[in-house]
């Protein structure tokens, strides 16, 4: 098939062979289906001084997952994994509620939240890079204990109702600047900064080479341990920021259930975006598309009116479909199946 289309439409061939096409196609299909489910799905209007509509919601709600997924993409690029991101979010949220009750300046509290995320990353990075513990086990430690740490922080000030008001932090999370939600603007800024660090310095290349072959990279003069360590710190910082957004969103700290299973969504976003758990590649932009696919799916399920019992099954089926689309082998098999029929 490709041999036929190659001479006539090289542009189409280039597009169809690009990895990017499949997740984007999946996103478009989900959004088209949504149009059938809910007739006014695409409506966007201005409510309370900001854009308002399902499409905005998808981007808005995808921000925390996308932030975590970007950090995860870098960690996965080193052939690692970070299961503790949900717990980091819980810890950063608990610290925010605690320090607000203690009366600190809210800008300083924002710094605390991000630094706390970074310190969690230092812990993970030390275990993985310097103690040589396998990433899935090393980060499992914080995944299991982190929510407990969050609850202990809540206990420090005896908070059974750790809710708070903060104009500054809520502004960053749920506010808007010129009709556009602030968290989306901040996300774009963070994305560009991260992209510059990864792609305009050698960091991305180093991460990919360490993920591809750590021993060879070491011989080539790359300090593999330091690169791996840094990737976990970046992942922790991203989770800390996501924790601020999620905590300020509901203005309450809920370490037990905040961002439950976000690590799975983040890993999924990386994989849908074309990342490989075998390491060696980072696709920041496509990871964001992956996060959008997941959130579009979640939003579609919520508006579909289907009984909640079906949520996880539908999510699993769509994810399977997207991953099959991405798999060269699966596509070839399907094409061969149809071609076989035509020949008969």
């Amino acid at each position: 098939m490709s041999s036929v289309s190659q001479p006539s439409t090289p542009v189409w061939k280039r597009i169809s062979q690009s990895r990017a096409i499949w997740p984007i196609l999946a996103l478009v299909v989900i959004l088209i289906v949504d149009g059938f489910i809910s007739p006014n799905f695409y409506n966007i209007r201005i409510v309370e001084g900001r854009l308002f509509g399902n499409l905005i919601d998808i981007v808005y709600r995808a921000v925390p997952t996308a932030l975590v997924a970007l950090g995860m993409a870098i960690v996965i690029g080193t052939k690692g994994i970070d299961l503790s991101v949900g717990s980091i979010i819980a810890i950063s949220g608990a610290i925010i509620a605690w320090r607000i009750q203690a009366g600190d300046n809210h800008v300083v509290i924002l710094a605390y939240a991000v630094i706390a995320g970074g310190l969690c990353g230092v812990w993970n990075g030390t275990l993985v890079a310097f103690l040589g513990i396998q990433p899935i086990i090393a980060t499992l430690i914080l995944m299991v204990s982190g929510r407990g740490v969050g609850m202990l922080i809540n206990l420090i000030y005896g908070g059974t109702d750790p809710s708070f008001e903060s104009a500054f932090l809520q502004g960053l999370s749920t506010g808007s600047i010129g009709y556009i939600p602030t968290r989306i603007l901040l996300f774009i800024a963070i994305f560009i900064a991260l992209w510059l660090v990864v792609r305009k310095t050698a960091l991305g290349l180093f991460v990919e080479s360490v993920g591809g072959n750590a021993a060879a990279s070491n011989l080539a003069g790359i300090n593999a341990r330091r690169i791996i360590f840094v990737s976990y710190v970046i992942c922790g910082v991203m989770a800390g920021w996501a924790g601020m957004i999620m905590t300020a969103d509901t203005h309450t700290s809920d370490p037990v259930s905040v961002a439950l299973y976000i690590e799975l969504d983040a890993i999924l976003a990386v994989v849908i975006g074309g990342g490989s758990l075998m390491g060696g590649r980072i696709y920041l932009g496509m990871t964001v598309i992956g996060a959008l696919v997941i959130q579009a799916l979640t939003t579609s399920i919520l508006i579909s009116g289907l009984p909640p019992e079906y949520n996880l099954i539908i999510k699993a089926l769509v994810v399977l479909f997207v991953l099959l689309l991405q798999s060269d082998n699966a596509r070839k098999q399907i094409v061969a199946l149809f071609r076989g029929k035509h020949n008969e």
Partner: peptide, 17 residues
Amino acid sequence: DFTTEGGKRVMEAFIKS
């Protein structure tokens, strides 16, 4: 899912639908 976050997310979708 019995959480504040979950309630907010679901109500946002209900408001649109």
